[in-house]
C-alpha cells in the first residue's frame, strides 16, 4: 500500500493474494489441528464400584481395582480396617502398590511413599492420594468417590 489515500493496483493484488493464501493455509491446517486433538469420550461417570471381596483381602495387604478407566487401591490395615484411595501417584502418574513390609503405600517409579491415610510422607510425591469412601456389605467392598 502506498502512503497516499490511493491504493496501488499492485499493492491491492498482493494484499488479495496474500490474504487468500493465508486463509487457504489456515483453512487447511485448522481441520488437521482439530483432528490431532482426540475427541472427548463421554464416559458414564463411575461413582461407586464393587472393588473386591473382604475375604480376598487379608490384613496388611492391598489390591488394585478398576474405578472406571482409572486404577484405585484398596488397603486393609494391620488392624483389619479397609481404606480406598486413588491408585495414581500424584508425582508422575504411575500406579502405586501396597507394601506389606513397609505397611504403607509405595510407588515403584520414583520411590514415593504414602501413609495409610493416603498422605505423601516421603520421596517426590507433592500431594496426598485422593481418598474414597468404603462401604462393606456382607463380603463385598464398595468404594464411592466424592460426597
Amino acid at each position: 500500500m502506498d502512503t497516499g489515500n490511493k491504493i496501488s493496483r499492485k499493492g491491492f493484488i498482493n494484499w488479495l493474494l496474500g490474504t487468500s493464501l493465508g486463509a487457504t493455509v489456515v483453512a487447511a491446517l485448522y481441520p488437521v489441528f482439530r483432528y490431532v486433538l482426540p475427541p472427548e469420550v463421554a464416559e458414564a461417570p463411575t461413582n461407586r464400584v464393587l472393588a473386591g471381596k473382604l475375604s480376598e483381602l487379608p490384613p496388611n495387604s492391598g489390591k488394585i481395582f478398576r474405578f472406571g478407566a482409572k486404577p484405585g487401591i484398596l488397603v486393609r490395615t494391620q488392624g483389619g480396617e479397609v481404606r480406598a484411595f486413588s491408585g495414581i501417584c500424584t508425582h508422575l502418574n504411575c500406579t502405586v502398590q501396597y507394601r506389606a513390609d513397609f505397611q504403607h503405600i509405595w510407588c515403584a517409579c520414583h520411590n514415593g511413599h504414602y501413609d495409610l491415610q493416603g498422605k505423601n510422607i516421603q520421596g517426590p510425591p507433592p500431594r496426598p492420594l485422593e481418598t474414597y469412601k468404603v462401604d462393606i456389605v456382607g463380603d463385598d467392598i464398595y468404594v464411592t468417590r466424592g460426597a
Binding site: I64, R66, G87, T95, A108, H110, N120, G123, P125, P126
Partner: peptide
Amino acid sequence: DPFAPAPAGIKPEWYFLFMFETLKLLPAK
C-alpha cells in the same frame, strides 16, 4: 496391564537415567 501397580525396580533406558534419578531425589516441595 493398565490395572497392575508399577513393578519394583522399574527404570527407563540408560539415556534417560540421569533425569530419572534426579527426579527421584527431588523432594516434594
